[in-house]
Design a protein around this nucleic acid. Structure first.
Lengths: 205, 205
DNA sequence: TTTTTGATAGTTTTGTTAAAAAAGTCAGGA
DNA sequence: TCCTGACTTTTTTAACAAAACTATCAAAAA
């Protein structure tokens, strides 16, 4: 709690940074604790002094990324001229987040089934923030009188987020299921914009 | 082509039926050709007389299921009072199709990545039929003057189908990614109805 | 007392091989 | 043309050793 933690915190930060790079470029399973330690010119044992194990180190990096994302959302809450701006902002921010960290999430793709609970805590936090941003935007918009009053805005936003999550690449040609490939993300992004366009109109009088 | 194929076709049908039951109850990887042959009191070699190999037998069953589904869609094309009826019909039919054959599709879940191309042909056919049904319904509705003219109805329907595909179980509590579990299908179904409600309104004037 | 490390213990992944099980083939019978 | 038993080939499974990696710890350094 005292000032003495400063140096420790800085070191932790360094470790998170180096780990992020490794995880981002090589994925979870193909980076070893030795390599991270090597990048920082420290011993592997020291990593274990700062973090209890590999998976929790990964989580810590992920939490940091999530926090940055959350902050971005929170900083822009209630700053939108209309509902569409809010939705577009959310889609763009989310898109950038995914594109910039695409390889980092191979951990998700690999384990697919039973991921550690802490992951779902973080995902839940992010989801809650998105829900908050967008349902407030909806409430504001209702106040403006542009769209119909909604009993439960969160339910509607939750639905939209699910729907957005379902957008995949070109129907017939491409093979669905599985994770979207990186080269498709831009096409997906464009489709999402079209979807919210229709969706918003669906909320109007 | 001649009448002599009748008996062969009946036998093929029997094989498809028995295979369907096995695949449905035990999944692809846990049913053996011997078991199917046993169910029909025939030799395994005879199966290979009618079908080239196991995977193509599975495909044949799948194609049969798909054809039944397609027929259902085609029989009801252009029979809807309004657009919503058409969408609800599609969602309900699809829902029943999935619920009734849930275990059959474990083949998808297992392989997840690189599935045989023939699968995608069938998926493509089904998708095309859904696209056709719904975009015709949209065109009809435009004719009625209820909704705005759309340059490319198929694009819009494609988008909606993707969105529907993304609907999953309750946000925070439940763990996303991965296939939906059977016990969640009804909840998903309800959410889909809500989505098309908003979506259709989004297409109106 | 806090931070750091080399050495080492423990666990998971990888590679190998043999046995078992299942897929797939074929010569020949009805 | 339809069908089968016996056979071959391929795939899955189990067991186990080697290698790679995670995680720990006593002790040195700061």
């Amino acid at each position: 709690m005292a000032a003495g933690n400063d140096h420790q915190d800085i070191k932790r930060e360094k470790i998170l940074e180096a780990s992020h790079q490794r995880f981002l470029h090589y994925g979870y399973s193909k980076t070893t604790m030795n390599e991270i330690a090597g990048d920082l010119s420290m011993s592997k044992a020291l990593l274990y002094y700062y973090f209890p194990d590999k998976s929790q180190l990964y989580m810590a990096v992920m939490r940091k990324l999530a926090n940055d994302y959350l902050k971005l959302l929170e900083d822009n809450i209630d700053t939108f001229g209309d509902l569409k701006q809010a939705f577009v902002f959310q889609i763009n921010t989310h898109h950038d987040f995914i594109v910039n960290n695409y390889n980092f999430f191979d951990f998700f793709r690999l384990n697919e089934q039973n991921l550690p609970d802490m992951i779902w805590e973080i995902v839940g936090m992010v989801h809650a923030a998105e829900l908050n941003l967008l349902s407030r935007a909806i409430t504001t918009e209702i106040g403006r009188g542009t769209i119909k009053p909604i009993e439960n805005p969160e339910e509607v936003v939750d639905l939209l987020l699910d729907a957005l999550h379902g957008i995949r690449v070109g129907a017939i040609s491409q093979k669905k299921t599985s994770f979207p490939r990186k080269e498709h993300l831009d096409e997906i992004h464009a489709k999402k914009l079209l979807l919210i366009d229709i969706f918003i109109k669906g909320l109007m009088y």
